[in-house]
Design a protein around this nucleic acid. Structure first.
Lengths: 344, 344
DNA sequence: AGCACGAGTGGGAGCGCTCCCACTACGATG
DNA sequence: CATCGTAGTGGGAGCGCTCCCACTCGTGCT
């Protein structure tokens, strides 16, 4: 077992080296690198040339040490549910976040939190302030992370609020409105027994979708039948089981509003199992208008929320908050819209 | 516009503070924090208590400055194709990488490279050695990144090699073998005109799948008909257009092997357009066995590659390479397997 | 008793940068 | 012609840590 020879990979030039080469002081180089206007054209040119010649790249660690900025933000996804590929919502958030971040000079740290151990690790990480800010999606009512962020006074933006009184900045979609539109659509098409498979109700978004469902039924003067409401968890499996349960409880139902596309895909499977045709026998509507909505059979009518846009917006809010850490929290609602396909 | 008061958020305790409190020197605290065995039980206990009481968390920037380690690695995805949510492959890689990384104390930087500007930014970033290592997936033949990584002597692992002579470490699936098995399956079921829609052939994986297709046909003594080969790009759109092209060229085809599930999904659409039934008229096989394979109508028979596992393995190789930067490159092939569903 | 040795320990030096203050040079002003 | 800005500059101090060397003890041996 021979030890690999300690090779020194061509030590990178330092600020000091650039200064020497350009015949100026360290301060001047620093000013050029950081775009300060208080540098003469001549000095700037000399420095820029030296940087070019030496291939100088600033050492971020040294910079961080003195500025205590990290130039990185974390996107935290509590992935306790399933894996990323079956949750297009998260992928779209990531896409949006990454796209928006490309304009800035911040790096994106992706943190998937699967269990308690990983949550603790994240806690230590945030406590060490190893990021300038945090984006947090899929927040549940009792999630301890938002409070930690508040306590640490770490700039943060939530994707989806915990409640209507959410103190932190957040971006969310008009969940109740989307649900209302979906259910109205079903009623307008003559459906009379509209069921719903909810998401996890400890998430405000899921609760709002259920509320929207109820509002639309109430508007139309339909009696509230709790037998038509079954609880899911946004997953496909939840949708399948929820649908079976609904069919057992209310065999006469003719429509179902699902809290996510995945849920709807599961419902579709359960309906196929028992030979109910979609949309003839039962109309189905999903939520998110994610990529799965286009691949199911039949393709899903779904409430579109601008997921990628939400990611972008979250970054914008976070950058603002990082720029001026005063408590200027901002909360933004994005519109939803019904995309009609064949399932309803 | 009043400027927010400069508040100082409870200055974090330093190593020095811990040392003072524990009544030991800085060196001892450092040793405890870094798990050195050369500390007496008594000193260790004192330090640990002080750390606890003070809520000490090491400053990573200061540590990086002297060790020139960052404790972070980058996962680079050249996302020039489409968005993440429609590419389950990438999501699964991310899932695997993140899961494996949870065992270590490294952080995951996700870098999506969309255009030339972002590639340059990444180049600067890597040049500044702001990560300890790099995972690079979806490498094309002419991708300049691998060479940059070699030049920088930055530990790196590729997901998919550039060629059989790949000098860098990599993990890849047995693409040719998978393709062979798929095509054999079709032939064994009596299909006589088996077409293929390839991936981008400047990727070794795609080329290997095409080679496997050809091998299986040759084995069976079938004449090679280049009219049955059409070029795609792993996308759904490519699959749709490729299938249309194939139908125009060889109306009599009765099977098609697609280089990805997405491609197969597109092919399915094109077949449906012209009323061909799957699998009765045309059998279809995909590749990846990603989440879309289960959602198409009919569900796709597909060659499974252990994508998540590949992500995990990439991390393992990278960690090894970071641990001893000697040129111990490792190259690993993972098996593929045919998952039979209804489309073939 | 004297010595060597290893286990532990303290703390100086220094990583590469930004911050900031003192300083220079030069044009404008009274 | 003395005085005062003002734009630009150089470099000391210090961020919080690890590295490493010099040092102090016991302990076991001669």
């Amino acid at each position: 077992m021979n030890r690999a020879a300690q090779q020194q990979p061509a030590a990178r030039p330092t600020l000091e080296a650039v200064a020497a080469r350009a015949g100026v002081g360290r301060g001047t180089v620093s000013r050029v690198v950081n775009g300060s206007p208080k540098v003469s054209a001549k000095a700037r040119a000399a420095v820029e040339q030296a940087i070019e010649e030496l291939g100088y790249v600033p050492n971020q660690a040294a910079r961080s040490l003195v500025t205590s900025r990290t130039d990185a933000i974390a996107l935290v996804i509590p992935e306790n549910v399933a894996k990323l590929s079956s949750e297009p919502y998260f992928s779209d958030i990531i896409t949006g976040v990454s796209a928006e971040l490309a304009h800035s000079d911040l790096q994106l740290l992706l943190v998937l939190v699967r269990d308690e151990r990983e949550r603790e690790r994240l806690t230590r990480y945030l406590t060490a302030r190893r990021v300038d800010g945090v984006l947090l999606v899929s927040v549940h009512q009792d999630d301890p992370l938002p409070e930690l962020l508040e306590r640490l006074e770490l700039p943060a933006v939530l994707g989806g609020r915990r409640s209507a009184q959410e103190p932190l900045s957040y971006v969310h979609a008009d969940n109740a409105g989307g649900a209302r539109v979906a259910v109205r659509h079903l009623l307008a098409r003559g459906r009379t027994a509209v069921a719903t498979i909810t998401g996890p109700l400890d998430m405000e978004g899921a609760a709002a979708r259920l509320a929207g469902y109820r509002q639309a039924l109430a508007e139309a003067g339909m009696p509230a039948d709790e037998g038509l409401v079954v609880h899911g968890d946004f997953t496909e499996r939840g949708g399948r089981e929820g649908m079976r349960e609904l069919l057992a409880r209310r065999p006469g139902l003719d429509a179902v509003f699902c809290a996510s596309d995945l849920t709807a895909a599961g419902a579709l499977q359960a309906l196929r199992e028992v030979g109910r045709r979609v949309p003839q026998d039962v109309a189905v509507i999903g939520f998110d208008d994610s990529v799965v909505a286009r691949h199911t059979e039949p393709p899903l009518t779904s409430v579109r929320q601008p997921t990628e846009e939400m990611g972008r917006l979250m970054v914008q809010l976070l950058l603002e908050e990082i720029a001026r850490p005063g408590r200027f929290r901002r909360q933004t609602v994005l519109p939803t819209e019904l995309v009609v396909r064949e399932s309803a």
